[in-house]
Simulated assay, not measured.
Amino acid sequence: MRVLKLTPFFHHPDVESWPMAFDSVGGMQVQTWRQAVCLAEAGIHQHVMTIGFPGLPKLRQLHPLLWVERMMIPMPRIRSEFSGLVGLTQSWAAATLYALLQRARRQDFDVVHVHLDGQISALLVACVAPRLLRRPLILTVHCSRLAVYTPSSWLDIFQHRLARRLERRAVSLAFAVMALTQRTAVVLAQDAQRVEIVPDMVDTTQFAPPPVEAVTAFRERHGLRGRTVGFVGRIAKEKGWPHLIPLALALRENGCELLIVGDGTQRDRLLDAVDKAGLLDWVTVTGFIPNHEVPVAMAACHLIVMPSLYEEFGGGQHRGPGHRRAGSGLCRWRPSRNLA
Rank of each mutant, 00 (worst) to 15 (best):
I235D: 01
I138Y: 13
R267L: 08
G327D: 08
V25N: 02
L62C: 05
A95F: 15
R105D: 06
L259F: 03
I44L: 01
A189I: 06
L6D: 09
R135I: 00
R2N: 15
A104R: 15
S144L: 01
G262C: 00
D272L: 11
Q190K: 15
T96L: 07
C143G: 02
T184H: 01
P246R: 07
R131D: 12
L6W: 04
F109S: 07
A273V: 03
T184A: 08
Y149V: 00
T140S: 15
Q182A: 14
G84D: 08
G223F: 05
W92R: 03
A273L: 06
Q90R: 07
S308I: 11
P210R: 10
R77F: 09
A21L: 12
S152Y: 02
Q159K: 11
D156H: 10
S83P: 02
K58Y: 03
M49T: 00
T286P: 07
T216D: 14
T50M: 08
Q193I: 01
L97H: 01
P151H: 03
F9H: 14
V125R: 10
R145Q: 09
M178W: 00
T284V: 12
D203K: 10
H115I: 01
A189L: 05
H292M: 00
S308G: 11
E238T: 04
W333R: 04
R332S: 04
T32S: 14
K5L: 14
F207Q: 11
W18I: 13
P136R: 05
I51F: 00
A40G: 15
I289R: 04
R169E: 02
F231P: 01
M75F: 09
H113N: 09
D108F: 14
L251C: 01
P209K: 06
T286L: 03
V114P: 05
R319W: 09
G26N: 08
A36R: 02
V215I: 12
H318P: 00
R225V: 13
Y310W: 13
Q107A: 12
I197E: 00
Y149S: 04
R319G: 14
A208C: 12
E257W: 01
I44N: 00
P211I: 01
W241S: 07
L249T: 07
V229A: 01
H45M: 05
E167R: 10
H160D: 14
M28N: 03
E293L: 13
R267D: 03
V285M: 11
S17R: 13
W33K: 12
Q193V: 14
R221G: 13
V30H: 02
M178S: 11
V202S: 05
A236G: 06
A176I: 06
A189G: 15
Q159W: 13
P74L: 04
L247Q: 10
R105I: 00
R134C: 06
R164N: 04
L123C: 12
R269K: 09
S153M: 06
D203P: 02
R145T: 05
V294L: 09
S172K: 05
L339W: 07
I235Y: 02
G230A: 15
Q119S: 11
Y98L: 14
P209V: 14
H12R: 15
L224R: 15
R337E: 13
G226S: 14
F313E: 03
L162A: 10
R164C: 14
I73G: 02
H222W: 15
L62S: 06
T181P: 09
N338K: 15
R225D: 04
G230C: 15
L166F: 12
F218C: 06
T32G: 00
L279E: 05
L249M: 13
